[in-house]
Design a protein around this nucleic acid. Structure first.
Lengths: 231, 231
DNA sequence: TTCTGTGAACAGCTTCACAGCA
DNA sequence: TGCTGTGAAGCTGTTCACAGAA
């Protein structure tokens, strides 16, 4: 699993608040977040299969986790199950979506229209989950102006105006390592505070900016380690 | 089927396991593995800058971690530093590479030649780290036979023979969710025991097969959670 | 009874603080 | 003196086991 590594967003820190009284938001562990997305996916599947109810055991199997941790995760959101019965599929999905901030529309700008950027802009899994790709940018003259799906590739020189015009609130960096920090800084300057980077470099961002990293070479290297060791 | 896979850890000089435990395999924690790849990258950078020595402090900064955990990680591999001085860049890089199984050539087959598959096959970060893309396969007739870089897209119907002919020992699944489990099974049948999947589904693999997952939609969803919570 | 929700035990990872060595 | 290597403390996340509700 990719390791999260943003500096501990240390704010006042409240001990987990009352289940029902909203002391606004409770902080969910990173590991829980990753699993919640799997539960959502599993719930979707169940829903399309016409199932209206499920149990922690079934849902856990579908999600590839154990029932214990699933119940623990869900209990962090509140008590939405019925003892002796289970969970209502649609209801639970709704609660998870809400807790994860997925019932609003997110506007994503993809910076870097190389192979990876184009792949991401065409990925169906995004739109179906509330993420709209609103811009695709690149620095290469021969790419700028070309169309990818329904998008026209814009010039990274116009980054600021594009981000403003599209009201993007998430940026994806799919650019070479050497260009990443500079573009990252610009994006942050423009007020975007959530960044997903595929660049194989360590990026510095100010406090309050959320950065996640996906590192493809790292994934293969970890695989190689296991491959050489297991049996 | 009988396919040559894991090149036996021939390479006689197994670094003697931990002095205390006679156990052959010093198992490195997953979190450590992820960081080791970052150290490697940082060491590469230092090397190209002409630095021959480094310290845990410097290397930690370059890798985006704190010095304490870096020293702890390295101590799991053995003692390769000099107290009061630091580490020799090339030497340390060599030790890490070896511990991670990166000084052998890994042969990667990419299954799914859609946008993502093509992006992966062209990603420079792989080859430079000992991963050679030896095959690219797809099921779509209009894609089969086309060339991507130096590769010709093969038919997934011929998966078994292609994997055997290329002696692939790592498979990357960049196919739609619906096709993933079937292809995964086939790959495992062919003797490949290391799989990196980008498919947004839970895959079942037998014991002894190493599966890693990268889930792009999950990454954005986690980002969305933080975006809605951090003011 | 069944299956959820949760305190408590447990395991694993990170940080601290300092001993050990060049 | 400076920096590594490492026990020990602290923290976070997972599993267990069972109480509690339908």
């Amino acid at each position: 699993m990719p390791t999260p590594q943003h500096p501990p967003a240390d704010d006042g820190v409240e001990p987990p608040a009352h289940p029902t009284t909203g002391s606004l938001e409770r902080i969910l562990p990173e590991a829980t977040l990753a699993r919640l997305t799997q539960y959502l996916r599993a719930l979707n599947t169940l829903q399309t299969q016409g199932q209206t109810r499920t149990s922690s055991g079934l849902l856990a199997t579908e999600s590839g986790v154990n029932p214990s941790i699933l119940r623990k995760d869900l209990s962090l959101l509140g008590s939405y199950g019925t003892r002796g019965v289970g969970y209502v599929v649609t209801e639970l999905a709704e609660h998870i979506s809400k807790a994860m901030g997925l019932n609003q529309q997110w506007r994503v700008a993809i910076i870097g229209a190389g192979n990876l950027g184009r792949a991401l802009s065409g990925y169906g899994g995004f739109r179906s989950r509330g993420f709209e790709i609103v811009a695709l940018l690149d620095a290469a003259p021969d790419v700028i102006g070309s169309t990818v799906g329904e998008l026209t590739v814009a010039d990274t020189k116009d980054l600021a105006s594009v981000l403003e015009a599209t009201a993007a609130n998430i940026a994806v960096l799919s650019v070479p390592g050497a260009a990443a920090q500079g573009l990252c800084d610009k994006v942050v300057e423009c007020g975007v505070r959530s960044i997903l980077s595929f660049a194989p470099v360590v990026l510095q961002v100010p406090d309050g900016v959320n950065l996640r990293k996906v590192d493809l070479a790292t994934e293969l290297q970890i695989l190689a380690y296991h491959a050489q060791n297991i049996v």
